[in-house]
C-alpha cells in the first residue's frame, strides 16, 4: 500500500495519473454544473428549486464540497509539482525553439489552469460566499431581500441576472470559461493518454471530440452571461 502511494505521489507517471483522475472528476463536475446552470433558461422556478435542493441538503453538500476541494487541491498540487520538474528539466532554454506538432493549448496548460484557479476563487466569492465588494453591483446577494423569492428560497435566478448585468463581470466569465475550455480541449484527450486508454485507431477522433466538446462547453457556459447581458433573459 505504501508502495502504491509512493509510486502515485512521488513518480512522474503516478502524478500524471492523479492529474488525469482528478481532471476527469473535475470534468464531470464541469458538465454537471453546466447542466444545472442551463436551467436558468427554464425560468426562475427551475433554477431556484435546483439551487435550493443543493443548499438544503447539507449532509450531501458538504461532503461533496470537501471531495471537490480535495480533488482540486490534488490536481493543482500535481500540476505545480510536475510543472516545476518540467521546467527544471531544461535549465538552459533554446534561443530558437519551434513547437513542432505541439498545440497552443497543450503548451499553455499550466497558465490556463492557473487562471481558471483564480477564476474559481473569484467565482466562489461571487456566487457562493457572496462577498459584496467583488460583485461590482453594490448589492449584497446574501442579505438583500431582493435575492429571495416568494417561497423564501435564495433567488439564484435573480442573483445571476444582477450579477451578469455588469458587462465587465460577464465578459470576465466568458473569457475565464474560454480558458477553462482551452484547458479541456487538450486536457480531455490527454487524460485518456495519461491513463493509457488512447490508441491509434480512435486517438484522432478523441482529439477532435475533446476540442469540439470543449467548444460546446464554452458556448454552453457563455450563453448564460451573454444572454443576460443582451437581455435575452431578464
Amino acid at each position: 500500500m505504501t508502495n502504491l502511494l509512493r509510486n502515485l505521489f512521488c513518480s512522474s507517471l503516478g502524478k500524471k495519473y492523479l492529474m488525469a483522475g482528478t481532471g476527469a472528476a473535475l470534468f464531470v463536475f464541469v458538465i454537471g454544473h453546466l447542466a444545472g446552470n442551463l436551467q436558468i433558461f427554464l425560468g426562475p422556478e427551475a433554477i431556484n428549486r435546483y439551487g435550493n435542493l443543493l443548499q438544503t441538503n447539507v449532509e450531501l453538500l458538504w461532503p461533496v464540497r470537501l471531495i471537490l476541494l480535495a480533488i482540486i487541491i490534488v490536481h493543482i498540487w500535481s500540476a505545480i509539482s510536475l510543472t516545476r520538474e518540467n521546467r527544471a528539466a531544461r535549465p538552459v532554454s533554446y534561443t530558437d525553439w519551434k513547437p513542432t506538432a505541439a498545440s497552443y493549448a497543450s503548451r499553455t496548460m499550466f497558465m490556463s489552469g492557473v487562471i481558471v484557479a483564480f477564476f474559481i476563487v473569484y467565482h466562489l466569492l461571487h456566487y457562493t460566499v457572496m462577498v459584496q465588494s467583488i460583485n461590482f453591483t453594490g448589492k449584497n446577494f446574501d442579505a438583500h431581500p431582493e435575492f429571495f423569492d416568494k417561497e423564501g428560497r435564495h433567488d439564484v435566478y435573480h442573483m445571476m441576472i444582477v450579477g451578469f448585468s455588469n458587462p465587465v463581470v460577464a465578459l470576465f466569465y466568458v473569457i475565464a470559461v474560454g480558458l477553462l475550455c482551452l484547458h479541456l480541449s487538450h486536457g480531455v484527450s490527454a487524460m485518456f493518454q495519461s491513463l493509457g486508454w488512447k490508441k491509434r485507431p480512435y486517438g484522432a477522433c478523441l482529439d477532435r471530440a475533446a476540442v469540439w466538446g470543449s467548444v460546446a462547453i464554452w458556448l454552453g457556459y457563455s450563453s448564460i452571461p451573454l444572454a443576460i447581458l443582451f437581455k435575452v433573459i431578464s
Binding site: S11, K16, E85, A102, S106, Q193
Partner: peptide, 18 residues
C-alpha cells in the same frame, strides 16, 4: 525504468506530441 527516468531529471509528459 520509470524510477530511473525520474531520477535522471527528465521532465514528465504533458502529451504535447512534439
Amino acid at each position: 525504468m520509470v524510477s530511473q527516468m525520474d531520477s535522471e531529471g527528465f521532465g514528465a509528459c504533458t502529451v504535447t506530441g512534439s
